[in-house]
Design a protein around this nucleic acid. Structure first.
Lengths: 112, 112
DNA sequence: AGCGGCTCCATAGGTAGACTATATAATAGT
DNA sequence: ACTATTATATAGTCTACCTATGGAGCCGCT
């Protein structure tokens, strides 16, 4: 038997999912972002911690997000990330590019 | 200036694109598959040779395709690949999975 | 005749990006 | 106390596509 594959983030879409989560809900900590993506995707997408935190670090360096340590709702220290204008621009760009490529793939795989 | 990105195949979709090309047009050689994907995607998708041929080898081993050496339309030796029943099954599975995950991503990135 | 361009296959090596596994630590509930 | 949950972080691995390269045959052009 082939082992059941767990939910996976298609490579290249992780930044977009994170950026969109922040655009939707405002400043959030990493753990909250992962939960949000999982829930809103109806449990299909699961952002693993080993993918999420390194991605957030890279996004900080790229200037797409800002980070600020605060207390979470549950009274724990948490790092809240918020979109920069550049992050917003990047999000728009990634969504456009995603839709362009997905439309192309659909042209290939559609029934015809 | 950021260098222009060339068309890329989103990781995880290459097998699907190849299988679907064979399902659409019947037995084809690798070069023809690459051309077909490029054309039908309106030049958005470009299957590189360094991705294509290794993928075809792996698909042979997996039993998704059969290969046969023939003369091409242009009078050159070419390896014609054709779908096996298992390849057909795999194609259906990959398309189902692709649509499931893409629908999930759309739920995350849609305007709301 | 020679040359470049296109067709066709193939492999080695590099790289990007997500994953697994692990570590840390604080809080809440039992 | 003990356990589960919340929360961040990093090292190392692996998959999969890409770049670069090589070879070979056919065709058209000059």
């Amino acid at each position: 038997m082939e082992p059941l594959k767990r939910p996976e983030i298609p490579p290249g879409t992780l930044y977009m999912l994170i950026l969109k989560s922040l655009a939707r809900l405002g400043p959030m900590h990493g753990y909250g972002i992962a939960q949000h993506v999982h829930q809103i995707s109806d449990d299909v997408l699961q952002v693993e911690e080993g993918s999420l935190y390194p991605a957030l670090q890279r996004m900080l360096i790229k200037g797409w997000v800002l980070a600020e340590w605060k207390q979470s709702e549950n009274n724990r220290r948490a790092r809240y990330y918020s979109l920069t204008p550049q992050g917003r621009k990047q999000l728009a760009h990634e969504i456009r590019e995603f839709e362009r490529v997905m439309a192309a793939i659909v042209r290939v795989i559609q029934p015809a």
